[in-house]
Nucleic acid binder design. Structure first.
Lengths: 142, 142
DNA sequence: CGCGATCTTATCGCATGCGATATATTATGT
DNA sequence: ACATAATATATCGCATGCGATAAGATCGCG
């Protein structure tokens, strides 16, 4: 018989939800949704990226990203500029406001760490297990 | 500096996505979405549950569940019946078609196990760590 | 050169999730 | 008994995710 609590997928699913619930109030303070936060982190790491580059890092396609990026643009955090060399491509870059937001976001990870109730060393182990599992799953799809 | 790959949350988020990608074709065969699958598992475990009971197990509120349950009802897998003793409550129970669907779903977990590329013993350890993390996060919210 | 294949982004429809609010019913305190 | 609070479900609006498809630009091959 199928049991909910025995399913790895439900462990991942429900943990993801819990993570979102913890992030939600923190991100609300800086006016971002969770996915928008991930996009901003990608851009803080490296400014001026193509839509496709961002998608590759976040495992998201343009059907999710294009509307999301338009909302970030409307909020004045990024700009989307279609490339002149190759007009298929759209480069995303941070505005001054978008760059400045990083200083407000920088305190979030420690609050999350606290909420996990785990030591940093434990987190590292669990995180690498997640990544391993993710790679196995994605590898199996090919 | 914030780095995407160091964030536990992104590990959970992206693994959840990968899990969904693996499940998607399997669930399409039996005509369920992933969340619908979770609801059905809850009902296969125990038929006749209140909307609220299902929500508690899946960590979902009625704003998600009510429309989802209506779709399952429209597809003939469940019935929703408002209780006569307490007319605030709605009991969800499986139809014959809904019960029968379990036999088609029963083969899914082994396919998922294969896709994880891990041994069952490993899965158990990882899964319990996820659940521990989830409990910590949820406990921190109170 | 020309034209079909490929690439890059955008659009559409549907199903979650969830904060906020509404509605109806039951419980409670005086 | 009756006003009020608490409970259970439903509705609404918005932001993802994603399969399918479209639109436009570039590439590649004959």
């Amino acid at each position: 018989m199928l049991k909910l609590d025995d399913l790895l997928c439900f462990g991942v699913y429900s943990t993801n939800h819990a993570m979102n619930k913890v992030y939600s109030p923190l991100l609300k303070n800086i006016g971002l949704t969770y996915t928008q936060y991930l996009v901003m982190i990608a851009l803080w790491e490296k400014d001026r990226q193509l839509v496709g580059e961002i998608g590759e890092k976040l495992f998201l396609a343009t059907n999710t990203l294009t509307p999301l990026l338009k909302r970030l643009e409307k909020n004045g955090l990024i700009e989307r500029i279609r490339s002149k060399e190759d007009e298929r491509q759209v480069t995303v870059h941070l505005t001054k406001k978008g760059k400045h937001l990083e200083s407000e976001a920088i305190c979030i990870p420690e609050k999350i760490l606290e909420a996990t109730g785990m030591k940093e060393s434990e987190i590292e182990v669990i995180c690498s297990q997640f990544i391993q599992l993710r790679q196995n799953l994605l590898g199996h799809l090919k």
